[in-house]
């Protein structure tokens, strides 16, 4: 069972993401955090997330209420506990600036939410590939 942290406030997107993961046949358990502050708590493993297990994948929307998604990304990257957790940004923004910023901090994927259902469903396969194929390769080669 793959544990996935989803930072996303739009229920429509959460639904679409679950559909996509289902289509991709990735057996997973989602922890959904719908605002930036809670996401920060999770990243720092504090408050109610103090003892939550480390996920196998983080799917992060940059546009979340309260605290900015990039801030959450920085906090995740700052925490050694998440050092081997791949992060995929799933953003409604495809602005080059946001992409550049996220990549500077360090993400494994930057996926613009597609304005097309078919495209959207392909995200499941991509995430599956990231967590099932790429990540084990990386951790094994890295040590």
């Amino acid at each position: 069972m793959i544990r996935i942290l989803v930072v996303e406030d739009n229920p429509g997107d959460i639904h679409l993401l679950k559909m996509a993961l289902q289509i991709a046949k990735l057996e997973c358990e989602l922890t959904v955090v719908d605002d930036g502050r809670e996401a920060l708590d999770f990243a720092r493993r504090q408050g109610k997330y103090a003892s939550t297990p480390i996920p196998d994948l983080v799917v992060l929307d940059l546009n979340v209420p309260k605290n900015d998604g990039l801030e959450v990304l920085e906090a995740l990257r700052a925490n050694d506990a998440f050092s081997e957790v791949p992060i995929a940004v799933l953003s409604s923004s495809s602005s080059p600036r946001d992409i550049a910023k996220a990549k500077r901090i360090g993400v494994e994927r930057f996926i613009a939410k597609p304005p097309d259902l078919e495209e959207y469903m392909k995200i499941g396969a991509e995430l599956r590939h990231l967590v099932m194929v790429e990540q084990p390769l990386r951790t094994s080669s890295g040590g």
């Binding site: 739009n10 429509g12 679409l16 546009n63 409604s92 939410k113 597609p114 304005p115 097309d116 259902l117 078919e118 959207y120």
Partner: peptide, 11 residues
């Protein structure tokens, strides 16, 4: 954003 929602959910 909302436009994307409309498009995707219409589909």
């Amino acid at each position: 954003e909302p436009l994307r929602m409309i498009t995707v959910y219409s589909q």
